[in-house]
Design a protein around this nucleic acid. Structure first.
Length: 170
DNA sequence: CACCTGATTGCCT
DNA sequence: GGCAATCAGGTGA
C-alpha cells in the first residue's frame, strides 16, 4: 500500500515495505495494553484512524488503526520506499539517503506530526491508498523491534522482492 | 510530585 | 557496536 501526505500544499508518498502489528489488552507491547489514556485515545477509534505519538521526546511515529471502535489495535508504519515528492522528503530530512527506512524517518520525510493524530486515512492529510500496480513480492515475518515485552510474537512484516532483496523502485 | 523508560535516530569509535 | 539526545506518559509514593 501507499502512504501519502499533503501538508502545506506539498505532496509526498511512500510505498510501505515494513510494518508491525499491535493489539490491545492482550498485547503487553502495545500502548493500549493498560487501557485508554490521553495519548493512545486514537487507538480506540475505528479502523482507518491515524494514531501518531511522540517517542523518546524527539521523533514521531505513525500507526493506522485496524480494529473496530473500542477495540484497540493498530499497525505501525516502520518503513517505505520514496515514491512521490522525493525532493520534499529530502528537504524535510536534511539529506538524500535513508529517507524513510524507519518509523521516525517516515514521519519526518512525510511531514507527519501530532497534529495528524486522530485524523482519517480516508480523505485526511495522511492517506492510505492502493498501490498503482501489484509488484511480485514476498512478505517476511519476524519478531517486533525495539520492544521489551511481547517479543515472542512475530508481528513484524517486511515486503521484499522474490529474491529476498530490499524493495526499491525501478 | 519524583522517578523511570521508551513501538528511535544518528553520531562516535 | 555503543551511546547521547530529550521529554511526556505512566507508575508509584
Amino acid at each position: 500500500m501507499r502512504l501519502t501526505t499533503a501538508f502545506d500544499g506539498i505532496e509526498a508518498g511512500i510505498i510501505i515495505d515494513e510494518a508491525e502489528a499491535y493489539g490491545g489488552s492482550d498485547d503487553p507491547a502495545s500502548h493500549a495494553y493498560r487501557g485508554r489514556t490521553a495519548r493512545n485515545a486514537s487507538m480506540f477509534e475505528g479502523a482507518g484512524t491515524l494514531y501518531v505519538y511522540r517517542i523518546y521526546g524527539i521523533h514521531w511515529c505513525a500507526n493506522i488503526v485496524t480494529g473496530p471502535e473500542g477495540e484497540p489495535s493498530a499497525v505501525l508504519i516502520r518503513g517505505g520506499v520514496p515514491a512521490i515528492g522525493r525532493d520534499a522528503m529530502i528537504q524535510r530530512r536534511g539529506s538524500a539517503g535513508h529517507l524513510s527506512d524507519g518509523p521516525g524517518k517516515v514521519c519526518q520525510a512525510l511531514g507527519i506530526t501530532g497534529v495528524a493524530d486522530g485524523t482519517s486515512v480516508v480523505g485526511g492529510p495522511v492517506r492510505l491508498a492502493a498501490p498503482t500496480k501489484r509488484l511480485p513480492i514476498q512478505i517476511q515475518e519476524s519478531p517486533r523491534i525495539g520492544i521489551s515485552r511481547g517479543t515472542s510474537r512475530r508481528w513484524r512484516f517486511v515486503a521484499r522482492n522474490v529474491d529476498g532483496s530490499s524493495l526499491a523502485l525501478t
